[in-house]
Design a protein around this nucleic acid. Sequence first.
DNA 1: CATGTTTTTTGACTCACATCAAACTCAATT
DNA 2: AATTGAGTTTGATGTGAGTCAAAAAACATG
Lengths: 253, 253
Amino acid sequence: MAYFQAVHRPLRFTVPPSNSARLSNCSTCNLAELCLPVGLTDEEMQRLDELNMQKHSYARGDYLYRGGDKFRAVFAINRGAFKTRVLHEDGREQVTGFQMAGEIIGLDAISTDMHDGEALALEDSVVCELPFHRLETLSRDIPSLQRHFHKIMSREIVRDQGIMLLLGSMRSEERVAAFLLTLSQRYAARGLSPTQFQLSMSRQDIGSYLGLKLETVSRAFSHFQEKGIIAVRTRSIEILDLALLQAGVNSSC
Amino acid sequence: MAYFQAVHRPLRFTVPPSNSARLSNCSTCNLAELCLPVGLTDEEMQRLDELNMQKHSYARGDYLYRGGDKFRAVFAINRGAFKTRVLHEDGREQVTGFQMAGEIIGLDAISTDMHDGEALALEDSVVCELPFHRLETLSRDIPSLQRHFHKIMSREIVRDQGIMLLLGSMRSEERVAAFLLTLSQRYAARGLSPTQFQLSMSRQDIGSYLGLKLETVSRAFSHFQEKGIIAVRTRSIEILDLALLQAGVNSSC
DNA sequence: CATGTTTTTTGACTCACATCAAACTCAATT
DNA sequence: AATTGAGTTTGATGTGAGTCAAAAAACATG
């Protein structure tokens, strides 16, 4: 709870934090993003069983889905983390997002009944599979579920537009600062430390996500460290001066 | 119809074309994107009247909504064109999209009940206002409408991810080529000429959308013109060599 | 049509980030 | 402890696109 205090004035491009930091349980999964803020009655919660959700495990490096895969379900991440990416025919890849426990993934497939991009596990992970047509059926009966699902999709749109803002009008160090702040807020929203966390993705992945080369990401980290803003230990980050980091987003000092 | 032939092998980052080029009429509007591909029965079409859609006109430069506005409705563009943008606190703006007749706008507001960005008319325009809670209610009764609305939201996500790919891993001329191709396909999808069209937005707007300065956009246009790929007359474009333009997307020659 | 304003084009110059390359770290394996 | 290999850091150098500036074209207005 105290963690929440630390992160004030959320920035436009960051992920809107979830409505609450506590996670509630569906019968099978911790579906923070799907079940929690809906305010479902006990009876409605029971009806969620009709979704017949299945848990699956994935090892680091496993694909959750690939581009072109038939769309069957959306996925709620239960444990672990994933990256999503799209591929260009000439092989260029672009990481479109990092997803952590409690978040929903696979929303790109609804429009065409095929996954447009691919998702792969950054760590050993557990996900809940939500058969999409059952989710649609059920949300016809439970208006609050319907509304909440719409909110999740809309949040995805807002988030992507935030990244467009970042890619289109920020320079390298601003982007990296924004990235770290976003991570920080997402950890805070889940009741984890917003000032000290592991990076489950490589510099390469971060660079791809931010439209930068890995060397540039590394240099930004080093530079922030020199200035005492963060402490970097390869795959773990400690934020030492949040205010300075936030300042760094608006003008690469 | 013949226009469709001209555009082959749609590129990953482009807008998935609508399912059909013909527009059907709801009782009040031409809601291409909302009503058409659903396959509604006559009776269901009539029920759409319950939405009580209202038409409104906007002059060039008018705001359809602004950041922070309360969310009441999504909008179906009937005539004209809009741009959407998000603003950074320090004044930097980023154009997040251009919308033309037949497209749905305002999907960013669902998650927070507030519009995140703003939309303003690039030409004199007419839009249909779709009160969102009525749309939700109705889509509980009409599964095909529900599914179709989900597809529209998902398509927006895919489209934004395409722009992320563009901003993150393409260089200036590739971006401009991709932009022109996307426009071309959108015109084709609406039964208009894909090789000759008006640009309702400024070079500045295009630049902001593509993460480039207006001078860079202008230079790219000029360069394409020198090479005989397009003919530019300030606010109107003619595509002379579609194949070359497509080639230009993958490697800025 | 003359005038002022905005938008677009073009050119010269600069700099942030990419590129290339080499050294270093860390974890896994033998 | 030595070996390997992927991932990361750091330095030296090059270039694509930004910046600044000025001319040209398009547009608006009295």
